[in-house]
Amino acid sequence: MSVVQKEKSGPDFFFNYLIKVIRAVFVIRSNRDISTAVILKQILFTGFEALPIISFIALAVGGLIILQGYNLLSNFGQGIWVHVILVTVVIRELSAIITALVVIARSGTAISTELGNMVVNREIDLLRSFGISPLSYLVASRIIGVMAAMIILTLYFNIIAVLGGWLFSTIFNRIEFRAFINDFMSVLHFSDIFVTLLKPLIFGFIIAIISSFQGLQVQMASTEVPQRTIRAVVQSIFVIIIADVLITMLFYYLS
């Protein structure tokens, strides 16, 4: 095992990696290796190309929540409260977590596989031979791209889910779109918008950092790439759910 390999398998390696990446992300102005092209490509892949699947899921989720909620609440004559369920379940919780799961499945796996293959094909060495930091050029740029795409996708998810909710609610009784939105806005608070923006930022960072870390952990063989990708998916889901619980608890504690 070479000196570099030993270093990569050390127990404190992830935390060193985390610190280096955070430094690379937050000193963008002085970091000449951060690539705008890589950031834009990542936003295009993670954000724009995921719009069809996000639209489909959001429409279905929004609709199903209205369908189930209306059925349940109308038994008690409380159909109006279905908007509260929409805000509580979709805006605060589901939008960020479902978007994160889609991003893990599409972009997390792609990042891990791409970086793993780059290690095997010695492309990381190539960058280092130019004096370009792989952490800045490949990882920090991807983290910024995924975080930006996560925010855009989550907001988009919310809009489509609300739209889906209105479409399904018209099945039970004809509600004017404006009236539906007015009811919805009356139960939507600033804190809901804050949480719906905070979560995707944190989830995007988690997905990108874990996926890139696992990708760069590949040492020699291409057979390691799928193993590392699986780890990236499992760890990302695990950490995101924990983060979601913590943020929600903190949110309820503060409010």
Partner: peptide
């Protein structure tokens, strides 16, 4: 330095 890798490594 500039380094030429033996297998002609490039960014894929």
């Amino acid at each position: 330095f500039a380094y030429v890798f033996e297998d002609g490594t490039m960014m894929s």
